[in-house]
């Protein structure tokens, strides 16, 4: 029974990486978008700058999608020939997907809040845009680290 569930575990990992990282990004982009709209209401000339800030928390969702894509490709779902995975292999793939799933969710939420604070800087001091962008960009580091580990782990699993 357990060995028959290998492909299910693997698909669960791919789904979680898309769902959790996507949820985080949706929140982050949403909250930053509210702040961006507030600034543009008063000063439409800042649209370009605040739009970049708003997009920063969106990358975690892309990372989740990338990990899911690699997973689906490796287990043969995309080519229409699913691999015959054991239960242990399926669980390994699930575990490999978790870094980007969990870190994606948490980091995108925090990046969204940091982007809101930085949009406040742009609203008052638009010439400080470069510095303001660095604050939310720092949060990105941890999403990238999680992405690297997830990709390396998925590619390292032998079928």
């Amino acid at each position: 029974m357990f060995d028959n569930l290998g492909i299910v575990f693997a698909l669960t990992g791919a789904a979680l990486s898309v769902i959790l990282a996507g949820m985080g990004s949706a929140y982050g982009v949403g909250v930053a978008g509210q702040a961006a709209a507030g600034v543009v209401t008063e000063d439409p000339s800042k649209f370009g700058k605040v739009l970049i800030m708003q997009l920063l928390p969106g990358t975690q969702g892309i990372y989740g999608l990338l990990v899911a894509f690699v997973t689906l490709n490796n287990i043969g779902i995309l080519s229409g020939k699913p691999a015959d995975l054991s239960g242990a292999q399926g669980l390994m793939i699930l575990a490999a997907c978790l870094p980007i799933a969990i870190v994606g969710l948490v980091s995108a939420r925090h990046q969204g809040k940091t982007a809101v604070a930085s949009i406040g800087i742009v609203a008052k001091k638009p010439d400080q845009f470069g510095k303001a962008m660095l604050f939310p960009a720092m949060v990105e580091t941890y999403a990238i680290l999680a992405l690297l580990i997830s990709i390396m782990a998925i590619n390292a699993i032998q079928f």
């Binding site: 909250v31 509210q34 702040a35 961006a36 709209a37 507030g38 600034v39 209401t41 008063e42 000063d43 800042k46 809101v116 949009i119 406040g120 609203a123 008052k124």
Partner: peptide, 10 residues
């Protein structure tokens, strides 16, 4: 969030 950002502009 929206209101505070707008106030920052003001």
């Amino acid at each position: 969030t929206y209101a505070v950002a707008r106030i920052r502009s003001l």
